[in-house]
Design a protein around this nucleic acid. Structure first.
Lengths: 246, 246
DNA sequence: ACCGGAGCTTTCACTGAGTGGAAGCCGGTG
DNA sequence: CACCGGCTTCCACTCAGTGAAAGCTCCGGT
């Protein structure tokens, strides 16, 4: 082949999938090629194969989209739909009791990924999307996941600049380090206006034999918040789910 | 290469993903190789690349599972999570009014795929799984999707043997053909004990400019069922969603 | 301690699947 | 009607990928 050496076929195919994002879920051939950093003919051939299998779909407009077949396969991810299926009843209970937003997230590398969300119609609007990512150092779920992450992960997050979302976001590595110790000690995390100035979240860990695998949280309007009352509810939900994971 | 000619790298990678199923979401290297019909070293190398990217994950037990990254990408599928996000509020309304099972499905080839389901805790238990597949000729959603599918799809389904689930399942092509005509005429489908002897479902189409893209249904206990009362509710939900898709 | 076997990983010489520049095609636009 | 942007096809070149075989690492049995 003439292809630039050191780039495998598989990595090219995966680069095509990487090109899609929540902000641009439909791409033309040229956009796809540009985002994947690959020559047009290459993308054309690889994409055709993906369409034939169902990993991509091509609309009447010629744009490529993620195909249903890939969604089906993705739904087999134990940490995706698997976790969701297990957690949903508990999340619904939490919603029935509080009528606030309930969120479920896991850590992936140095970010968190939202697995499921029950958005109370009368609760604070939250900007998160199922399948979306977010930084670990601001949200309640993020703090819980970070506090129980391997030390090397914590150090990597602490070493990088901590993005500021509001004036209350913790951006000082020292303070964050102390905050994480508190989270481990008390068994839950409170993020008070650290993401948006109207919201407060209370989060608790979900443990499996191999450690903390996910976190669950309630997100409530700041002024209406009573963290002391909410913490036991969230912690209980976390414990119920932990028990289900053994 | 020495590889059996006519089999592309991409097709091998996709064969690996195909090897996973709801019944076996975790596979050892050898199982993976056997199911994909590929030599062990090949699978070893390709799987390693998929793990590096996050499409697969490898547990402490050495088994491969679908990775969270693939779930994330899959969640960008317009007909998967995209459709779900849009439909969920309406499905919840339908649930609030009826407290019965609400299902959302699309057609993929000659089967249907369940996109979302609200399982009423006191409603009939249904055997469907989000991300799962089912035949088109028995369920309410299936009949709606089949009735509005391209003619060649209908003919393929009618030509193949129609699997029987209960004594009321329609297995005669002629009867099914008439049933589909009825569904198109009245605008909804009723499947009365055609999947299990305890359940009845009422389904309605969801239309986009390009045609019927999905179906929504209520599944209720057979003895408690009042199709005449339910049909307007389900049809209204379908219409609301159709309007949202323009 | 030794053996055998099942499952995973690595090696290595060979080769055709994949590459990408270039050229063709198609539909819209000044 | 020439131009342009985006898509598709062609084709000669070559290296990424292959898979048989050998090596490795745990087992459990004797």
């Amino acid at each position: 082949m003439r292809g630039q050496p050191g780039r495998s076929v598989t990595s090219r195919v995966l680069a095509l999938l990487d090109a899609f994002s929540p902000a641009s879920p439909a791409l033309t051939l040229s956009e796809l090629a540009r985002r994947a950093g690959l020559p047009l003919p290459t993308v054309h051939r690889r994409a055709a194969e993906l369409v034939a299998w169902g990993a991509l779909e091509r609309g009447d407009d010629g744009r490529y989209r993620i195909g249903l077949r890939l969604w089906e396969v993705g739904s087999l991810a134990p940490r995706g739909l698997g976790l969701r299926e297990m957690a949903l009843p508990v999340m619904e209970d939490l919603y029935e009791v509080t009528h606030e937003n309930v969120q479920l997230a896991v850590r992936q590398d140095l970010e968190l990924v939202f697995i499921e969300r029950i958005a109370g119609r009368h609760a604070v609007p939250v900007l998160t999307r199922v399948g979306g990512r977010f930084a670990l150092h601001a949200t309640g779920v993020g703090l819980v996941l970070l506090a129980h992450a391997p030390v090397e992960v914590q150090e990597q997050v602490l070493a990088a600049p901590l993005e500021r979302y509001t004036e209350l976001t913790i951006t000082d590595p020292g303070r964050l380090r102390r905050c994480l110790a508190d989270v481990r000690r008390v068994g839950y995390a409170i993020s008070d206006r650290q993401v948006t100035m109207d919201a407060l979240s209370v989060a608790a860990p979900i443990r499996a034999p191999e450690g903390v695998v996910a976190a669950i949280s309630l997100v409530v309007a700041h002024e209406r918040a009573d963290p002391v009352a909410l913490a036991p509810l969230v912690r209980a939900a976390g414990r119920v789910l932990s028990r289900a994971l053994v």
